[in-house]
Each structure stands twice: as C-alpha cells, then as structure tokens.
Amino acid sequence: MKLLVCIKQVMESASQLKIHSDGKRLCTFESTRYEMNPYDESAVEEAILIKETVDNTHIDVITVGPSHAEDVLRRALGMGADDGIHIIDNSNDFCPPIRIASWISAFAKDRAYDLILTGIMSNDEMNAQTGPMIARILGWPCATAVIKEDLSSDRKSIAIQREIEGGARDVFDISLPCVLTIQTGINTPRYPSLSKVLRAKKKTFTTIEASQLETLRPEAVLDRLVLPQKTAQGIVLEGSALDKSQTLLDILESKGLL
C-alpha cells in the first residue's frame, strides 16, 4: 500500500493573535510556537496503524508552507512516516485551499497512491475544503469526518464510518484509491519515538518551490482579517476571585438557579 498524508503546520491554539498591519495575515512574535494541525496528527497516526497491519506499506507525508513547516514533516517521520515532501511557499500570501489542493493533487497524480488522508479541517483557517477538493481533482471518491476505517482483505476497498450530526455514523464501502478526511477520536496519536526522531533529523525531503507550480483555477480572494465586533450582552464580573464567586452566587440565587 502507498499512502499520502497531508499535514499542515499551524500556530499553537493558545498563541497570541494579532492582525498584521497589511490586514492579510497574523503577526508572529518571539513567543509564537507552531505545531502539527491536531486533525492531521490523527491522520498520520491512522496511516501508521495501517502500516502496522499491512506489509509493504509506505507512508509519504506532504506539507505546503514556509521553510519552518518542515518541522511537521520531521515530527511525522518521528511518529513513523517514511518520507516527506515539502512544497515551499515562503510568500506569506493568503493561500486558498484550492491552490493547496491543486498542488498536492498535481504531485499525487501519477504516483499510484492507494489512499490519501487529510485532517477534517485546519485549526487556523477552518476551511474543511482541501481533502474533498483533492479527491475531486483526482476524480477519486471521498469521505469526510471519518471516525473509523477498516481495509478489506483484498486491499481494494475500505469500510469507513463518517460522523454526522448528533454523533451518529454512516457506514460506507469505498473503492480505492480514495481520499479520507480524518476526525479526532479515531485514534490517540503517538508521540514521536527517540530513535525515529534521530533518523528523521538526517533525512532530506523532496522539495518543490511553490513559485514553479501553476495555479489556474478561480480562487476566493482574501480582502482582510478583522476582529469580531463585540456584541456581548453578558456581564463581566469584576474584583477579586472571592468577590466574583460571591457575585456569581448572588446572581444564581436571584435567578432561582441554586
């Protein structure tokens, strides 16, 4: 089996957020830390679980991003992926999902993958677009929000459960090759192992300059990032923690909620 997992580097979720003066991106600070998009960690883990049960499985991981995005490739290799591909885009421009999907599918097209995994969405942009777009460009079937998968014994199809509203699951049999977007809870992503991390350190990745790639499809255009207008109707409790807990008690009492 040949698997491709799409992984994105994102700012840690607790990062300080400030809109850059150009209005099109977020500022980075000395304190800014990056991590692998959590949904993509589940996707990498799921690929490794497949590799552990199916002989001769090879896992490629691919990322589109600036130079420092290669850290997520190393992390994925530390977890157990085999090779990394880095589409280097240092432009700092807004990169719509269609562009990322076009680049990744152009790379994947003639490489005989059986399965492409992505996260259900990226934590920073929250598009939930890239996976289904890759599938459509390649003409492959796709299931999003996958919470369980099970390869058939002849390796020609995969049984999946996709999560729907309320947490119910729809079960499908999908023929390979296909694209699955992974929902958290499907597994518990492992920590990279020391030996694999050391090996990953020496590894060279396949690199492709984004500037050499075509982008021919129509794209949505980012006008600017803005802070949400505060519409809060609620009250913010003031004072010491003890004051706040007294006030909360008063409020709950007066509302008859105790």
């Binding site: 977020l26 942009e125 129509p218 980012l222 006008d223 949400p228």
Partner: peptide, 17 residues
C-alpha cells in the same frame, strides 16, 4: 465573512468573478 482561529478572528473574502 467567516471565522478563523477558533472564532477569535474573522476573514473577509470575496469572489469578484
């Protein structure tokens, strides 16, 4: 407009064509 970064920022987009 759509939420990004867990709803702490909004992105304003257009599709002029």
């Amino acid at each position: 407009t759509r939420a990004v970064s867990g709803g702490k920022i909004l992105a304003r987009l257009c599709a002029p064509l």
